[in-house]
Every structure is written in C-alpha cells, then in structure tokens.
C-alpha cells in the first residue's frame, strides 16, 4: 500500500503520521505543497499543524495550494483521503467536506485526551473498530467547533456520515462531554462517498501503548483492508 502525506509550511504532525503509516508497512512519501504531481497513492493524508500560520483562516491558504488540485482529482476517483486537525480544516476550505469549524466554545486552545464513541464501522477508516467502542485520542486545536446548517446536519446523521462523536469514558454523548462545542458532539465527518474523512482528534498520537495509548492504530490498520 502506498501513501502520501502532504506537507505545507507550518505542518507539524506530518512526521507523526508518517511514523504511524510506516509502522503499518505503508510505503509512504512526503509530498510538498508546491508539487504538481502526486505519487501513486492508496491513501492521502493531510496532516495537522498550522499551515501558512493560519493566515486568513485556518486552512484557507493551504486549501488553494497547487497540490490540492491533485488531491481533489484523486478524491473524485475514490482514493481515501484523511484530514486530521488542520487537515480537516483544509478539507473544509477546499469544499471536499461541508460545514465549517468555528472557534472552540470556551475560546481556548484545547490540548487534552478525549473519548470518542465509534458509531459507524462500515467504511474504509473504521472497520477494525467495533460498533459503539469507546476509544481515547488526543485533541489539540483552537478551531474545532464543527458547525453546519440544519439540512446538512440531518444528512450527516441520516446517511451515517459521522464516524465518531465526543463522549465520556463510558460512552455517554452529551453536552458535558463536548470539549469544543461541536454540533451533536461531532468529532469527524465523511463526504457522501465515505472516501474522505476529516477529524479533529489525532489518531497518529495514539499508536503505541508506551506513549499514552494505541487506540489510534486501528484507524490506520482499517485502511490496509
């Protein structure tokens, strides 16, 4: 399996993603944002960080970069695309995913571990998890408060385009366990074809039991299927 990680000036989770992918025997290539050709990829990852220093809006400039045209083209052919944190913001700015990410409701940068309930395993990204499983991942963001219009929110729920939601240790999804104020505790969303996943939590930070946990590894191993 070949993977590509897109690197922008200001990306800072790109190498962690590469470590996670290589741990699972992906043949990974780092792709600079100014490149105009993508290597053959079975997976494209847009990593977290602060691309272009969050100028204009988080992800706004990266969303219009040269390589993104190729990413959009690959997505149309069904290539799985994963955007984590700033990567999610970039996918939204390109229009590949709908809605927007507002400032966190408490107006603070959040860096902490959170629990997520897996709500949909019939997709390329979550098939190694079990339904309703509670996993622990890390979040680190300032704009992760997912917002969209009522019509789109209903579509996300009805078509099962929400793979996981913020919850507590026991899997209870409510406002008390919503770190950033996201609508319906949404932590990540799919496009309609479910080949594009944008998520605020960082699976690449939880791939080793020695370092706080390995609940993120199944997301990458699912993609090997």
């Amino acid at each position: 399996m070949n993977s590509s990680v897109i690197v922008f000036p200001g990306s800072n989770c790109d190498r962690d993603i590469a470590v996670a992918l290589e741990k699972l025997q992906f043949k990974n290539k780092m792709v600079w944002h100014k490149d105009t050709e993508l290597p053959k990829s079975d997976l494209i990852v847009i990593p977290g960080g602060f691309s272009y220093g969050d100028y204009l809006r988080s992800g706004a400039i990266a969303g219009k970069s040269l390589i993104l045209k190729e990413v959009i083209r690959a997505s149309e052919k069904g290539c799985p695309i994963l955007g984590v944190c700033n990567g999610f913001q970039i996918l939204i700015e390109t229009g590949l995913l709908k809605g927007t990410l507002l400032r966190n409701k408490n107006l603070k940068f959040l860096s902490k571990d959170v629990y997520l309930k897996i709500l949909n395993i019939k997709n390329k990204f979550c098939n190694k998890y079990t339904l309703n499983q509670v996993i622990k991942l890390n979040i680190a963001h300032n704009e992760g408060n997912y917002f969209t219009n009522e019509e789109h929110l209903k579509k996300l729920e009805d078509l099962e385009l929400i793979p996981f939601k913020y919850c507590n240790e026991k899997g209870v999804i409510d406002e008390n366990n919503n770190p950033n104020g996201s609508l319906n505790n949404i932590a990540g969303i799919f496009n309609e074809n479910k080949n594009i996943l944008g998520m605020m939590p960082h699976p690449e930070r939880m791939i080793n039991k020695l370092f706080s946990g390995d609940d993120g590894i199944n997301l990458f191993s699912s993609l090997m299927n």
Partner: peptide
Amino acid sequence: KLLVNLII
C-alpha cells in the same frame, strides 16, 4: 472564493 467564509 477565498477572502470570506460565507457560512460565518
């Protein structure tokens, strides 16, 4: 196309 996020 770029300067404004029309949603917010």
